[in-house]
Design a protein around this nucleic acid. Structure first.
Lengths: 226, 226
DNA sequence: ATCATGCTTCGGCTACGGTCGAACTATGAA
DNA sequence: TTCATAGTTCGACCGTAGCCGAAGCATGAT
């Protein structure tokens, strides 16, 4: 408690199954109500309330009141990144008991990692961007001049998203594929643009599904050139 | 236990104060014996043994036997990165009660983040490399042609360290400064090179101290140009 | 006004996990 | 051999923290 190394407090906070379920559910970037989170965690409202209060005072979550609901969301991308890092460890850890539930394949295929595309498609995207010379760098990433032009033509306002304090490009290690996908402001903007165009839809939870024509357009625009 | 989301298991493992102390002590990349770790964690040998066994089966630590000692070390850079990510959260969390002990300023100044330079000097290094055009990219990083030449002249075998599976350049978010410093294979190679040249010495724990002439050379070679 | 819903606070129960003492194994030294 | 050190295993103790029932506030609907 008092001598606890800083790291232990936040880790034990995440370490409780109920809280971990809540955090995992919030990783798609949306805000959920206390009742929804209680159901997801499988506990009663009272218990959930206590958990949420602790997560809030620890600044892992932010709450915003609306009518008689309270919506909770992760307080920033750094929280989401830390969670993904832990997932990476959990993966190669005792990964023996990975739940191979029915929705797992879909998750592995395409999912939301906080606010950008992850999973097989996420890696396909980053590989494609590299092979087309739109981004460069092995582990670190930077935008090339061609990249600037292409993304602008695609309808992304690079000036606007570049003005935020958030890094433009960022490589995020994918826990299911063990390779990097595109994160950062650009990754987020690309995902919303693809959703706007109807290429991909968000399902329940963190699952994303591509429409047939959407996948075709995706590959034509950003896929690895054959 | 059984329904526990993958992430909770590893997080609760890190969440225990004794284990967190051990992991934090191992973040400098060295291997320590079970007895040393027990002392650091402030528990008896029996208790430490149980903790270490659990960390090992979870693949967070690897053990190697030598004589009648067992040396434990973090099992990889991904573990160290996850720990740093958690530190970042802990920092802005209830950081009110940060222990402002005497060795804290030194830690903030220069320390080892697993195997590369972090803290104020770490950020100074990355800023300098960027301003000299040796590495490029805002959040992501890549080596420029000038960078290749300079580092080779500095005595770093880029071919050798580039052959490993580990990314060459990587931006690692600094928990004390909230900005990025240089990680990856290049970051590690640079630190060992600077230690070899006597620019910097490793103290107890994770603290690094620059020698007077060492700091001058450091700034002349890699510092931000005035 | 009255009721209903969403969420929080309080109090007590329970159990899981961290802790240590003591006994055991293995390696090395005298 | 005998002793010493490093580490592990076993068993039992105990505290903390998660859990829920019940009651208390809000806000919104009837």
């Amino acid at each position: 408690m008092k001598d606890g190394p800083v790291i232990a407090q936040v880790a034990s906070l995440i370490g409780d199954p109920a809280r971990a379920n809540m955090l995992e559910a919030l990783m798609d970037g949306r805000a959920l109500t206390a009742a929804e989170l209680a159901a997801i965690a499988g506990v009663t409202a009272q218990t959930a309330s206590s958990h949420l209060a602790r997560l809030e005072t620890a600044r892992l979550l932010t709450a915003r009141k609306q009518g008689r609901h309270r919506y909770f969301a992760l307080s920033g991308t750094d929280v989401a990144e830390a969670l993904e890092a832990l997932m990476g460890l959990a993966q190669r850890t005792g990964a023996t008991r990975v739940r191979t539930g029915p929705r797992d394949p879909a998750l592995r295929m395409a999912r939301i990692c906080y606010d950008h595309l992850a999973g097989e498609r996420g890696i396909e995207l980053l590989e494609g961007l590299k092979s087309r010379g739109l981004v460069a760098g092995d582990a670190g990433l930077g935008l090339t001049p061609q990249g600037r032009e292409t993304f602008t033509r695609f309808g992304i306002d690079l000036e606007a998203i570049g003005a935020t304090r958030r890094p433009l490009c960022r490589a995020c290690l994918d826990w299911s594929e063990r390779r990097s996908h595109l994160a950062g402001a650009l990754g987020a903007a690309l995902l919303t643009a693809m959703i706007d165009r109807g290429w991909v839809k968000r399902e329940a939870g963190r699952v994303l599904t591509f429409t047939r024509p959407g996948l075709a357009s995706f590959r034509e625009t950003f896929g690895t050139e054959t």
